[in-house]
Amino acid sequence: MKLVVVSAGLSVPSSTRLLGDRLAAAVGRTAAVDTQVVELRELAVEIAQNFTNGFPGQALAAAQEAVAAADGLIVVTPVFSASYSGLFKSFFDVLDPEALEGKPVLIAATGGSARHSLVLEHALRPLFAYLKAVVLPTGVYAASEDWGAEGLDGRIERAAGELAALMAGLSGGVPAGRAPRAARADAFSAVVPFEEQLAALRPTG
């Protein structure tokens, strides 16, 4: 299965990229995945040019194709002005409108304060629901004080388990790459009800 991490971190090193890497590693401990990372800071100029001329550059086109062909996505943004970054939004604005349809997406964000944790619910979840993605119930927010603190690892493992389970269900019997819409719909119906799969992932007792 192909997993793509979209990171909108701007600095090097980046806590946004670090969170994406930790989520991807957790998915890899649960399922066999081929992971690719898309660093949006490296595509910033091509994204801006795509808005003005209507054509993606070579690197941006490759990133768009990778996202469209993925079996699942991890998307991570820093919090700017209580929302996702402009670079993060701009990348998804230049994707094919149907690229994320029926695709499992794990949403995540980083910020300087825990007060911004609701960005997952008021900004990221509505965006990917609009793009017709299957947004996982568990999102992961990491504030500065969360790194090394108790709790973050548990949220990462829970979200990664949800993503691995849904990717496996949707990829069963579906051709590699971006499946036709009917095939994706059949695969999705095969794993309904999703709530039962999530219940099986939660610890008992």
Rank of each mutant, 00 (worst) to 15 (best):
L3D: 03
V4D: 03
V6K: 04
S7F: 05
A8T: 07
A8V: 08
A8R: 07
G9Q: 11
L10S: 15
L10W: 12
S11L: 05
V12P: 00
V12Q: 08
V12F: 00
V12S: 10
S14N: 04
S14I: 03
T16N: 07
L19C: 12
G20V: 10
G20P: 05
L23C: 11
A24S: 12
A26S: 14
V27M: 00
V27Q: 07
V27G: 02
R29D: 15
A31K: 10
A32W: 00
A32I: 10
A32Y: 02
A32T: 02
V33N: 13
V33K: 13
V33M: 11
V33A: 11
D34N: 11
D34K: 11
D34P: 07
Q36H: 06
V38F: 09
E39L: 10
E39M: 04
R41Q: 12
R41V: 13
R41F: 06
A44D: 12
V45C: 12
V45F: 15
I47L: 04
F51Q: 13
T52M: 14
T52P: 08
G54I: 04
G54T: 05
G54C: 05
F55L: 03
F55D: 00
G57Y: 09
G57P: 14
Q58H: 09
Q58F: 09
A59C: 02
L60S: 14
L60M: 12
A61H: 02
A61R: 07
A61Q: 11
A62S: 15
A62K: 15
A63L: 13
A63H: 08
Q64G: 04
Q64N: 08
E65F: 00
A66P: 10
V67N: 08
V67Y: 04
A68S: 15
A68L: 06
A70V: 01
D71V: 13
D71E: 14
G72I: 06
G72A: 06
L73P: 01
I74T: 00
I74G: 06
